[in-house]
Write a protein that binds this DNA or RNA. Structure first.
Lengths: 402, 402
DNA sequence: TTTGTTTGTTGTTTTGAACAACAATAGCCC
DNA sequence: GGGCTATTGTTGTTCAAAACAACAAACAAA
């Protein structure tokens, strides 16, 4: 609701905070980079060798990391031990969509180890989607080795989510309004469930494992089944806003056009850059992102090119506005936005430059997303991993029994 | 330039960091709240009584704080000691504008203790402005008691600033291009000089001492002599972007209008909501913000009302876009933006709602700035105080000698 | 083989926050 | 006014965690 005093954690730092923070820093490095030499941890954290030794030791004894004699070689001096995140920790990811509900199992080292797409005839209501997901998760659990520890379930929903309690406030494509999807799924699975917007989770995944790696300030624009969504990273932290609805970049008004989006707003990015308009131009009823991409890159039809160019111009405007506001290092485009960007990169960059101040777009890099369709699931799993990453020593994980 | 590894501080926290952080937290609380009972510090920081005693003791011995037997009373128990920020620390603030250069002396407890406005016939070039400022500062120093410690000089310039080295990249109203104003003033005064955009410093002041107090997520829109500027606070931190140019909210493109602003961009907030248009409607050559405000609040002329209403609508659009992007708790308007907001608040709110998603504007508060014209100077001084606040024990201050 | 370099390990030191016990000072109730 | 309770400040002690120092281990280059 509000972000004033009541919810604010104490500002002071004591010894517990210190230890927890350092454990968290090390674990996060492992989670994001995979296997790294221990010496790398000392240089990045700035902590003493013996301290890192101690911290890694604690992570190993907590079962969150593994240490092995690495195969680095090539450099002078005693070879450093290799530390890796434990692959025996798993999170589930759920993504209900208009025509299917997808569930994945993601290991702590960032691998999508199982994936099931369960198609539905109609858009599923929340109860149905929760039951489908719970069923698949139970099935997946039975296939995981006993002893695997489960961090929880992350859920990515195309709509506006109240993250605090997992309530879907509005998901127009699913026709869900004020549905407590998180608690529903938690009750069915007896696992902790966290819910967030699908574009937000995709953004998280790209930031950690994909095109956003190394950018502390980045803007993401994703086109998914639910229109255009976005995410913004400011100083390595995802922008959330006072009540958690920040980053609805599809709904920013960039023109005086009367075209209306699903939220009833006119002249927004989502109203102007529409996947359906492209499908119509190609006279297609439906297409996957991959099919559409091929069509776009190979078309010679001047009428279609006109439609694409128009969309590129509008997308460029939006990127320009966001560049002026955020002055990011990188802007990352996903879904069909990526396709039209690749159709004519210069056109988009020119449009962007015409809509932003020079200081803000100087040195700005616009690039494609890297993770494709698995970004949403990987990012959803991050929601569940977050608890362990924040408090490695204080988080109880559910142990899998067959 | 970039915000990657090279410039990043070590992630790990050691004991020194811990102490420095806690000292910094306490000092910042004092700086922002003024005199507070010591018991308040313990509850806010969550630190132990004896630790606070120790920290305050160190701040007192560093000459950064004062302890006295407070006059609280009224509650049970032993009365708490009162702690206040030392008034003997001073920062200077410089604000070159088109028709004058203003200099202020601000004490560490947030009082503007001296202020001199030096009018110039023409827009001053950078060297002239620096000489004027240096002269006034030398004069002010001679009036300050010997032993006063000086944190440095903060400079607020209407334009785009490279904060890192104090270079003014572009200040159209002053006609400065790529001028190293910071180093120039530092050489003349032998004091540390920091430079930032004037709207940004006003934003900082309102955030700490004015209408933004208590809002961890806020958007500021200020109309000054250099058009419309802005500032965004995300989780209590000012948005800076990858290279420090974030928050140029006057230049966001919100419409397809062909009207052009000073940066040559069309359809931007600054191009659509123009003070000059209001002056023209009133048939005025010039007016202070106060005079203009009176005129606006009392006008009955339907032609003028039409102009004002149009500006309100456009401003509302911009606020809506920013609400959708940031989902802030508060939006704060300054300068003549505040005047047109007060002319018809409901109209602005309606326009804002029509340009933003419900989740983002639900509970959003739009309000007026509180500090008026002194905001720019108070915020500029914050630039200089920042060093002491970040590292209370490690910052050397210049001692004033007559 | 020797030397220099880097890393891991172990025992010790140091720092800084917490803790516990006690003193100080207020309001409140009778 | 006296006793009671509540809150805060003070002091000496304890404890956790990071740094440090010294040494051993393992490599490359000379």
């Amino acid at each position: 609701m509000s972000d004033t005093k009541s919810s604010r954690s104490p500002l002071g730092q004591n010894r517990e905070n210190l230890r927890q923070h350092n454990l968290s820093v090390v674990l996060r490095l492992l989670h994001q980079s995979g296997a790294v030499p221990r010496s790398h941890l000392t240089s990045v954290t700035g902590l003493n060798r013996s301290t890192i030794s101690d911290l890694v030791g604690e992570l190993v004894s907590l079962g969150l990391a593994l240490e092995s004699e690495g195969q680095v070689g090539g450099s002078v001096g005693r070879p450093s031990l290799t530390v890796e995140p434990s692959p025996e920790i798993v999170a589930f990811a759920v993504n209900p969509e208009i025509d299917a509900t997808t569930v994945g199992a993601i290991s702590f080292d960032g691998r999508l180890i199982q994936k099931v797409r369960y198609p539905t005839q109609l858009q599923p209501d929340a109860q149905t989607a929760a039951q489908i997901a719970a069923k698949i998760i139970a099935d997946m659990r039975s296939k995981l080795p006993a002893g695997t520890r489960i961090a929880g379930i992350g859920t990515a929903v195309p709509g506006q989510i109240r993250v605090r309690d997992g309530v879907v406030r509005l998901a127009p494509h699913l026709n869900w309004v004020e549905v407590p999807f998180g608690p529903m799924l938690a009750q069915l699975t007896k696992l902790p469930v966290l819910v967030d917007n699908d574009a937000t989770t995709a953004c998280t995944a790209e930031r950690i494992f994909g095109a956003g790696r190394g950018s502390s300030n980045a803007v993401f624009l994703f086109a998914g089944s639910g229109g255009i969504g976005g995410g913004v990273v400011v100083d390595d932290v995802l922008l959330r806003g006072a009540s958690g609805y920040a980053g609805e970049l599809g709904h920013i008004q960039i023109s005086s056009s009367k075209a209306v989006d699903y939220s009833g707003l006119s002249g927004t990015l989502e109203a102007l850059v529409r996947r359906d308009d492209l499908l119509e131009a190609f006279r297609l009823d439906s297409a996957t992102d991959e099919e559409l991409d091929v069509d776009i890159q190979t078309t010679k039809d001047s009428k279609i090119i006109k439609v694409i160019n128009h969309q590129i111009d509008e997308l460029g405007r939006a990127v320009g506005v966001l560049a002026t506001i955020f002055n990011p290092q990188t802007v990352i485009l996903g879904g069909f936005l990526n396709s039209i960007f690749n159709f004519d990169q210069d056109r988009l960059l020119n449009s962007m430059r015409a809509s932003s101040i020079k200081s803000a777009h100087d040195g700005l890099i616009v690039k494609s997303s890297e993770l494709g369709t698995s970004a949403v699931l990987l990012g959803a799993a991050e929601l569940a991993f977050q608890a362990v990453l924040v408090s490695p020593a204080g988080t109880e994980l559910t142990i899998n029994r067959k």
